[in-house]
Amino acid sequence: MKTIQFTKMHGLGNNYIYIDLFKQSLQGRDLSLLAQQLSCVKTGIGADGMILIAPSQVAPVKMRIFNKDGSEGKNCGNGLRCVAKYVYEHKIVTDNEFLIETLSGCVVAKVEEKEGTVISVTINMGKPIFENKKIPFNSSLERTIRKTISFNDQDYDVTILSMGNPHIIFYVDDILQAPVTTLGPIVEKDERFPEGVNVEFVEVVNEGEISFRVWERGSGVTEACGTGACAAVVSSVLNQFTNKNKETVVHLDGGDLFITWRNDGDVWMKGPAVTVCEGVFYINQEDSDV
Rank of each mutant, 00 (worst) to 15 (best):
D48P: 00
A47P: 01
Q36P: 05
Q57Y: 08
Q37H: 14
T43R: 11
M50H: 02
L52W: 01
Q37K: 15
A35F: 03
I45R: 04
K42T: 06
S39G: 08
S56R: 07
A35E: 01
Q37M: 14
K42D: 15
Q57C: 08
Q36I: 12
L52D: 00
D48F: 02
S39V: 00
V61P: 01
L33A: 14
D48G: 03
L38S: 02
P60G: 09
S39D: 08
Q57I: 07
V61F: 00
A59C: 13
L52I: 01
S39Q: 14
P55Q: 03
I51D: 02
Q37C: 11
A47H: 02
G46Q: 02
V58P: 04
I51M: 13
L38F: 12
I51C: 02
I51A: 06
Q36E: 14
K42V: 09
S56M: 05
S39Y: 07
S56V: 01
I45D: 02
S56E: 09
S39R: 04
A47D: 03
Q57M: 06
A47V: 08
V61I: 10
A54S: 15
G49T: 08
A59E: 12
P60L: 12
A47F: 01
I51K: 03
S32G: 14
V61Q: 09
G44A: 10
G44K: 06
S56G: 09
Q57A: 09
T43N: 12
S56K: 01
Q36T: 13
A59I: 10
P55H: 09
L34I: 08
G49M: 10
K42P: 05
K42S: 15
A59N: 10
T43Y: 12
S32Q: 14
I51Y: 03
A59R: 11
V41D: 13
V58S: 15
Q37V: 08
G49F: 04
Q36S: 14
Q37R: 15
M50K: 04
P60Q: 14
I53L: 03
S39H: 10
A54I: 05
A47I: 00
T43W: 13
I53M: 07
